[in-house]
């Protein structure tokens, strides 16, 4: 497990597959090898208690870690990520008197996975209850474990096929964990962050900012 960076690829035309096709072509020009598919999904449960203390419980699965369920509790002030066996999913119905999921908020990113040397790239199409929402690109650099040591290299690589949508500064999530060892929890937490942005619907145009592009 290396360092993972997640990036929303702007899709102003909202065409979806046209843009992923474009990314596919670009990445194949870099001599990438396609090596299967991936999926990351997220279900969110909300508190149903009478108190005003609203907590969110995100239940995330990643096909890279197929027997793990990540339960991310968002209290508003802090986030706690629990890694559990996927039997945890069977526990949730027993907590429905306090936490209930909203089915129409189920969101997932699904797509193809590529290998280019030490990088693994996953180009995912994000859908929320069956409707296309955005394109999320996950880039993993395998030989390194701390973001501080490899961000500039990763940025250069990401800009080579995504262009100026990759900002020169580190994503805020990694900014706060610059010298920490990267874990699979960090990957799913970034997904939850992006999924939340996508649910709020601020992503299509919002990310097309100018950066020191390639």
């Amino acid at each position: 497990m290396g360092v993972t960076v997640l990036q929303i690829f702007p899709d102003s035309s909202r065409s979806g597959c046209l843009e992923t096709e474009k990314l596919h072509k670009r990445i194949m020009h870099l001599d990438a090898v396609q090596c299967g598919m991936f999926t990351v999904d997220c279900d969110t449960c909300y508190t149903v208690t009478q108190t005003g203390n609203n907590r969110k419980l995100h239940i995330v699965h990643n096909s890279e870690t197929p027997t793990t369920t990540y339960a991310i509790l968002d209290t508003g002030t802090k986030q706690i990520t629990l890694s559990a066996d996927y039997l945890f999913d069977l526990l949730l119905p027993r907590l429905d008197f306090m936490y209930q999921s909203k089915k129409n908020l189920k969101i997932e990113s699904k797509g193809a996975k590529y290998e280019i040397g030490d990088f693994v790239v996953k180009i995912g199409t994000v859908t929320m209850s069956g409707h296309y929402k955005a394109i999320l690109v996950e880039v993993e650099y395998l030989p390194c474990h701390t973001p501080a040591l490899c961000w500039s290299l990763m940025r250069e690589f990401m800009q080579s096929f995504m262009g100026s949508c990759v900002k020169p500064t580190l994503p805020s999530y990694l900014q706060n964990r610059l010298h920490d060892i990267h874990t699979p929890q960090d990957t799913v937490q970034q997904y939850v962050e992006k999924f939340n942005e996508i649910r709020e619907g601020t992503t299509f145009a919002g990310t097309q900012t100018t950066g020191s592009g390639s």
């Binding site: 907590r55 559990a84 039997l87 526990l91």
Partner: peptide, 18 residues
């Protein structure tokens, strides 16, 4: 009965869960 192996921050997680 459900036996679920979990990470070691489970006590903190349950406390914050309520």
């Amino acid at each position: 009965c459900l036996d679920i192996p979990v990470s070691n921050n489970v006590c903190e997680f349950l406390t914050e869960l309520g």
